[in-house]
Design a protein around this nucleic acid. Structure first.
Lengths: 153, 153
DNA sequence: CTCGTAACGTTATACTGTAACATCATTACA
DNA sequence: TGTAATGATGTTACAGTATAACGTTACGAG
């Protein structure tokens, strides 16, 4: 599974952050910008305490609330997703629009690929409707083995 | 969202456990049986440490490995699902067959409803196929607000 | 200028989960 | 029947994840 982020993708992610913040009237502070950069640079899901270590090197506070608050902000802007099954965070692949994504996470390499599948979303929305259930914006996590790791077995 | 389990459902869950164990050659010990009962009785997702408290009252060890090992066993038998987004465990609604389920979890009341939607599963399988991704059996978690909680707002 | 608010820092702690090893029970088999 | 192998459970200790509560700083609005 691809684990690199191109320079273009990183720029696009930061540009999306600028737009998201100006749209919502929030500020993309140096801390928030830096955390987003770290997540973008990782190119795959990364843990909160790993990010925290990097922040220390940059002179920011390395206490847990620092990173959790910042990630919460980035999530609220739709720039970062939390992957509950592995307690990690990953940059959103389509930060330009509110979406309901589908993310495939490899158990072996930890890599992740995010898709937006209209058909799946529509079907799930239909189920939710029958249940009278209101979905919130989120990503669905699908665990398994990616092509590269499967081939390596 | 419905949060009760009927006596019939509890009996069915335990009967399924007997079958699953005899099929796999594993033993449904008193501890395992009791934990499954507790999860069935809860009728909604329940945390590991809550279960642990109940075990203490029954004279079992209340150290964390007790409950995590037992839940792992029950998951392997397909009797219990883990809900990563809330770090909880819930009885499987269809313990009779290996399946790939879709579970709707209410943020307000913590209740959950599990569906098996062939169309959704097929669509996701199709995406996975295009990615060369091998899915493992699991449940997809959809977060939101259930009918009752939504009506109460 | 100062007030209000948002952002960030700091301390402490709660919650969730696992590693490693000991003990006990059961089964199979010499 | 002894005993070895295995599976199940108990026990201790700790690692990893996350949040509460409160203090401090920065900064724009009035």
């Amino acid at each position: 599974m691809r684990q690199k982020t191109t320079a273009a993708e990183r720029r696009a992610g930061l540009a999306a952050a600028e737009r998201a913040c100006s749209r919502s009237g929030k500020k993309l502070t140096p801390l928030r910008r830096r955390v987003l950069e770290l997540v973008l640079n990782a190119g795959k899901p990364v843990g909160a305490y790993n990010l925290l270590k990097s922040l220390r090197a940059d002179g920011f506070s390395d206490a847990p609330p620092t990173i959790y608050r910042t990630l919460e902000f980035l999530q609220a802007q739709g720039l970062v997703h939390r992957i509950a099954k592995s307690n990690t965070f990953v940059a959103c692949s389509r930060p330009h629009d509110d979406h309901f994504g589908l993310i495939f996470v490899c158990r072996q390499c930890g890599g992740a690929v995010e898709l937006e599948e209209q058909q799946v979303i529509a079907d799930i929305g239909c189920c939710a409707g029958r249940l009278g259930f209101q979905m919130s914006r989120q990503v669905l996590e699908v665990e398994g083995t990616c092509r590269d790791c499967g081939a390596a077995l």
